[in-house]
Design a protein around this nucleic acid. Structure first.
Ligand SMILES: NC(=O)c1ccc[n+]([C@@H]2O[C@H](COP(=O)([O-])OP(=O)(O)OC[C@H]3O[C@@H](n4cnc5c(N)ncnc54)[C@H](O)[C@@H]3O)[C@@H](O)[C@H]2O)c1
Ligand SMILES: NC(=O)c1ccc[n+]([C@@H]2O[C@H](COP(=O)([O-])OP(=O)(O)OC[C@H]3O[C@@H](n4cnc5c(N)ncnc54)[C@H](O)[C@@H]3O)[C@@H](O)[C@H]2O)c1
Lengths: 223, 223
DNA sequence: CTCAGTTTGTTCCCACGTTCACAAACTCTT
DNA sequence: AAGAGTTTGTGAACGTGGGAACAAACTGAG
């Protein structure tokens, strides 16, 4: 009974719930209350219940949730019952790490190709895959039905790589380059900016140590 | 005239504005309107103006913003006029990439130590720094006044590493391990979960290709 | 000086997200 | 079978954030 769209904030938390449920299953927990699951996921239990209610009514009042069943329902909602072919472009420091990351494959994603524009890198074997020329993107997307692309190139190349991805038919992009990407409607971009994360931490850190901002340039309350 | 707290959503965008301003400066732009800057940052111009108004009145009506001056003000607000010593714990695939990432150093952060529990890795030279034993954490934090720590260990070790960081005096943590961290009040944790990002993309991707959800188990509209 | 043109800072309103609190629905004991 | 104890799902209150729209403040020309 969920023909309605799921709120974006809820969607962003579903992967967290999925992780928590997997942890519980490893500990042989068959059933759990919203309180337990919320604690494991690090959220408020009311929020958890409301989130889950958007997917449907998968719990039992007075009892809780069947861990295995709920996990399946969330996985189905996200679309992890199939697995998604992914290409990674830009196999430098970060690209190598991503290619070697087992967490992607174990969570419904399959890296089908590693691409790089630098001919010196091509042919190198990373995590069992050969690095291939960027020009093969289009053929690879067609062959494997790739819908998701990861950009791990320098910022200067990101928009160009993005454009080629879109042309090739990729409709979802995960961007690690610190650069704003422009895409046509219908294409999703998610940006992961590690420097921004540190800067946000720095902002709060500064506020902790200096409760009263001195700032010699600021005249204070303008009288 | 900004003694008020800056909204969290605004804080999260300040790094983006900073990047955009740096780009403009490289292109020798001395002055810019909110419209220009908003486009460069990929946001709505009204939102940009409201964000900046939280920092103070740094623009000139009818003219726009002085790029250099605004950049300084944002940097000061975030706390990037000083630079922040950072330790990275867990120098595996991802830790290596982070250690080699120049984007951190160029944006006000200085990696002062790389730590790993695996004695086989210790002594290895990465990005000009020797990998040191995790047990030295406390001494390093004291010596350099480290306030920010990065966790790039497996999920199983993350909470333990986190606890040691907090004991050592670290009050801001960037966590790459897919694991919910419990910390005392006063400590900030930001989580970067790459698998979650892909899963969120997968959710939307699924909705694109299948406008009408079939789902043989669902009886559809309950009549 | 005045007026037209430009752009900021801010106000107002709406949509979304979070949290509390509670009725509805279940289990288990007696 | 009834009542006590649990726990879900949701309605309602509250807070935060986004965007349109506009007055205030500047520039520059005549
Ligand atoms: N290394 C990190 O930990 C880290 C952290 C945060 C963000 N980033 C960002 O991720 C991106 C990659 O970082 P990195 O350290 O791996 O850089 P890198 O220089 O080591 O690797 C970049 C790779 O992209 C390839 N490349 C360049 N232009 C290309 C193009 N047009 N098409 C295809 N491939 C191309 C290069 O040949 C190189 O192999 C950068 O934008 C960086 O800012 C990196
Ligand atoms: N590799 C990636 O691209 C990637 C992407 C997303 C998330 N992650 C997450 O980042 C983390 C690291 O990933 P990785 O691929 O680098 O793993 P890895 O196994 O290559 O590296 C982990 C490192 O942590 C060290 N370590 C283990 N326990 C420790 C402890 N208690 N104290 C200090 N150091 C310890 C290990 O010796 C090893 O060097 C994992 O949690 C992973 O899920 C990695």
């Amino acid at each position: 009974m969920s023909p309605t769209r799921i709120p974006e904030a809820t969607v962003a938390r579903l992967p967290v719930y999925l992780r928590a449920l997997n942890s519980l299953l490893e500990g042989d927990t068959r059933t759990c209350s919203s309180e337990e699951l919320a604690t494991a996921a690090g959220v408020n239990s009311a929020k958890l219940r409301k989130d889950l209610s958007h997917l449907g009514s998968y719990g039992t009042r007075g009892v809780g949730y069947d861990v295995e069943y709920l996990r399946y329902q969330i996985a189905r909602e996200i679309g992890l019952t199939q697995d998604w072919p992914v290409v990674i472009v830009g196999i430098g420091n970060l690209g190598h790490a991503l290619a070697n990351y087992s967490g992607f494959t174990s969570r419904g994603f399959r890296t089908v190709a590693l691409l790089d524009a630098d001919s010196a890198r091509q042919g190198e074997l990373v995590a069992g895959l050969k690095i291939r020329p960027f020009t093969e993107l289009s053929a690879i997307v067609r062959e494997h039905g790739v819908a998701i692309g990861v950009i791990a190139t320098p910022a200067a190349a990101a928009q160009s790589v993005c454009d080629h991805m879109v042309d090739a038919g990729i409709r979802s992009i995960l961007n690690f380059a610190p650069s704003v990407l422009t895409v046509p409607a219908g294409v999703d971009v998610r940006m992961v900016d590690l420097s921004s994360e540190l800067q946000i931490l720095a902002y709060h850190e500064q506020r902790k140590s200096a409760p009263a901002t001195p700032d010699p340039l600021d005249p204070g309350v303008v009288a």
